[in-house]
Design a binder for these strands. Sequence first.
DNA 1: ACACTTGTAACGTAACAGGTTACACTAAAG
DNA 2: CTTTAGTGTAACCTGTTACGTTACAAGTGT
Lengths: 95, 95
Amino acid sequence: MLMHNPPHPGEVLKELCIEPLGLTVTEAAKALGVSRKTLSAILNGKSGISPEMAVRLSIAFNTSSESWLNQQTQYDLWQAEQRREELHVTRLSVA
Amino acid sequence: MLMHNPPHPGEVLKELCIEPLGLTVTEAAKALGVSRKTLSAILNGKSGISPEMAVRLSIAFNTSSESWLNQQTQYDLWQAEQRREELHVTRLSVA
DNA sequence: ACACTTGTAACGTAACAGGTTACACTAAAG
DNA sequence: CTTTAGTGTAACCTGTTACGTTACAAGTGT
């Protein structure tokens, strides 16, 4: 159960990958093979990290695609959990 | 790094929740607060588990929403990894 | 025969990742 | 001061996907 608001993966990407390497958004986008707009949207929290983008990041930064997508999952899930009460769901199990 | 083709979360849902409780798709869909079509699509691998659906499942079956969404993430990622070679990405880091 | 369950086709909507082009802004370098 | 590089983002487009309702065909069991 997630307790705290997880950071948007874009922030992590910026702080752990882009800034340490002194990369510009334009450079990084070109290397990743996506448009500058797409990367910019991620870095500014306007869009999420897709499975394909996670793989791109894993290649460019020699990291784990799983870690990127898991971060996104935690973020998305926290958003959905905030609306837990609004979903009228009947309990089917007590296990 | 994922090595094996992960099962579709719908299969797991069917085998671990629906069938053990002797639930019909119609009943389960009603309890979850979604249409029969939506649940059927998930159970038959035609659509994935959304963040909101993960929360619904966690309420209905008293489980962890994280586990459901993580399963979906692993599944989606495995699909994306199959196309790893097709993405022309430049390595930016050797760390 | 009838009722129940199921998958699914055929429509629709909303959301979202991604693309191109173009604009305004900032900051640095000449 | 002008020029250049970098940036965010608006305005358009596409493709995909989750979800809804309605309706149909097929299977199963009473």
